[in-house]
Design a protein around this nucleic acid. Structure first.
Length: 571
RNA sequence: CGGGGCGUAGCGCAGUCCGGUAGCGCACCUGCUUUGGGAGCAGGAUGUCGCAGGUUCAAAUCCUGCCGCCCCGACCA
């Protein structure tokens, strides 16, 4: 491609509305432009990178035995009513009506459509297993689109769905996808890590997220330094503590006057106790029903764990109204004794005794509370947010924390959709069985952005070779000097001949401008053709990542570059 | 949806408090000089000042309503 003909508007200035480096650079490097909130147009350079990622994804999905399909983006409401998600999915689902007033939605994901397709066409175990995937534009009406392509409303996604006759088959399919994902992100040249994850509203029993490591990532993850355990923070388990016998403090329950003292901090200060000696009582509305969650004063409740424990759809902190209804006191004085709600407690309270707790009476707390003696807990469970001082739940080793960008997610769905939508088949014995499903997503645009977050410097993007829109740019420093341009053309044509995507910077610009642009758009190899070296029959090759420069004769260039590019070596 | 901020040339911004013919830098066009890390000089073009009402002799500026965008929070395969 000749740069002079390329639609590539680069910019020197950092766009004021872009916060993340990847967002800034994608705009500055002329990869994309915003149309409206959370919706972007991709320009030639950006689209090229997207296609590189897509191609890697395709190759590895095909290799793993999946088959590419293409499903509708506009989907009828009936399908979503059948799965239950028409109600359950909420406002992220963009709904619309056609001229006949029939209801539709824009697909945020395609479980319903694929399940419908498969149930109509697959009738026997002989046709299983199957894994179908597509690369499609999805639409999710995000409350707050931000971070450029990282969290937008319209976005490109690869989604795959596996159908197996039984749980064991589904396990195999899941494993294949897990391995394929490892290959995909490795081939993209990314530093990533699969972590155990919560399966969220998509449902299902088991899932992993693929996280690209980046401080700017939206997700917090933790991992063990000793073993392989790694998990999203919202999923990370805490080991159940050894059940100590309650010290069984003989001290009697005592009501103490604590005017205006509400937070754990205030309670500790006022009563001269440590947070570990206080019980925090949080009241949640779980699908509208009050539930009291007890946890040690120094710990935080993990709402995802609470939601999963209760098996509820909606979970939020209770309103003042509800708090008053169950405790007959205002917010800040809730406790377990006499509360009109289910009571569950975190493992951190196992063995607790003689603790401080709200009295369910305004301006009063109770001290010397003994769980078991003074109130009953429905159950103890792991409801806590993990923290640095906690041991690895698997091996007891030391854990570390990091941030990551979720670029892929694999789920074992089980029969959630196949049951609801009757995706059935006849087994060997002629018996009707429910298919077992899995679903597997990769955010294409997000992968591109994550690659930039991980690969950039002060001058711009530094593409990993496999994702580079062009692996090579040829830069004659002055196109008005015939020999420079002619040599550039010669090298350009020889590489084009070999099938290399080369960019020839044939613009009548000063060398500095060309260098800055080449760095900004992150091309891995730059062939610089200048008068001094050329008079000796030589040109320079510069590595974008290291800045290292090699001087070669013109005749050596082609072979040198072909070798680097085909090796896919890191530069 | 709650809190905060912004909307003026393609981009980044000043001007708004205190009403009086709309400015700066970059980019763009022309010419000359320059030519290995975003050139210099000279000249030039570019605006429904987010939209709609209102006040006023006069509105980018004051008032009302609306729209859009960004940040924080809540929310989120």
């Amino acid at each position: 491609m000749r740069y002079s003909e390329l639609f590539l508007p680069t910019g020197r200035e950092v766009p004021s509305d872009a916060e993340l480096v990847s967002h800034q650079l994608m705009i500055r490097a002329g990869m994309m432009r915003k149309l409206t909130s959370g919706i972007y147009s991709y320009l030639p350079l950006g689209y090229r990178v997207i296609r590189k990622v897509e191609q890697i994804v395709r190759e590895e999905m095909n290799r793993a035995g999946a088959q590419e399909v293409f499903l509708p983006m506009v989907q009828p409401a009936e399908l979503w009513q059948e799965s239950g998600r028409w109600i359950h999915y909420g406002k992220e689902l963009l709904r619309l009506r056609d001229r006949h007033d029939r209801e539709y939605c824009l697909g945020p994901t395609h479980e319903e459509v694929i399940t419908d397709l498969v149930r109509n066409e697959i009738k026997t175990y002989r046709q299983l297993p199957r894994n179908l995937y597509q690369i499609q534009t999805k639409f999710r009406d995000e409350i707050r689109p931000r971070f450029g392509v990282m969290r937008c409303r319209e976005f490109g996604m690869k989604d795959a769905y596996s159908f197996d006759p039984d749980e064991a088959g589904a396990e195999v399919s899941y494993r294949k996808m897990f391995d394929a994902y490892n290959r995909i992100f490795t081939r993209c040249g990314l530093n990533f890590r699969p972590v155990e994850a919560d399966s969220g509203s998509i449902g299902g029993s088991y899932s992993h997220e693929f996280m690209v490591m980046a401080d700017s990532g939206e997700d917090a993850i933790c991992f063990c330094n000793a073993c392989q355990y790694a998990a999203n923070l919202e999923k990370a388990e805490l080991a159940k503590p050894e059940a100590e016998l309650p010290a069984g403090s003989a001290l009697l329950l005592e009501e103490v006057h604590t005017p205006g003292v509400q937070t754990i901090e205030e309670v500790c200060g006022y009563l001269h106790v440590r947070p570990e000696e206080v019980v925090k009582t949080l009241i949640f509305a779980a699908d509208g029903e009050p539930v009291a969650v007890l946890i040690r004063g120094d710990r935080e409740v993990n709402e995802v764990k609470v939601r999963n424990y209760l098996g509820c759809d909606a979970l939020e902190l209770a309103s003042d109204d509800m708090i008053f209804k169950v405790t007959r006191s205002p917010r800040g004085f809730a406790g377990a004794i006499g509360i009109k709600a289910r009571i569950i407690a975190d493992y951190s309270l196992i063995g607790a005794s003689a603790v401080v707790m709200g009295a369910n009476r305004e301006d009063y707390h109770l001290s010397h509370v003994n769980p078991g003696r003074d109130f009953k807990v429905e159950n103890y469970a792991d409801l806590c947010v993990i923290r640095r001082s906690d041991p690895c739940p698997r091996c007891g080793g030391k854990i570390s924390f990091a941030r990551g960008i979720e670029v892929g997610h694999v789920f074992k769905l089980g029969t959630k959709y196949s049951k609801a939508m009757k995706a059935l088949y006849l087994d060997r014995n002629g018996r009707e069985q429910t298919m077992v499903m899995g679903c597997y997503g990769i955010g294409i645009g997000r992968t591109v952005a994550a690659a930039i977050e991980q690969n950039h410097d002060a001058d711009g993007i530094v593409w990993p070779l496999p994702l580079a829109p062009y692996p090579v740019i040829i830069t004659p420093v002055n196109v008005n000097e015939k020999p420079l341009l002619e040599t550039a053309e010669k090298i350009y044509l020889s590489l084009v001949e070999k099938g290399v995507d080369v960019l020839l910077d044939d613009r009548d610009e000063r060398a500095g401008v060309k260098f800055k642009d080449a760095d900004l758009i992150g091309i891995p190899f730059r062939v610089t053709i200048g008068p001094k070296k050329l008079s000796e029959g030589k040109v320079e090759i510069r590595y974008r990542r290291s800045g290292e420069v090699k001087t070669l004769t013109v005749s050596e260039v082609e072979a040198f570059l072909m070798e680097r590019i085909s090796e896919k070596c890191e530069v």
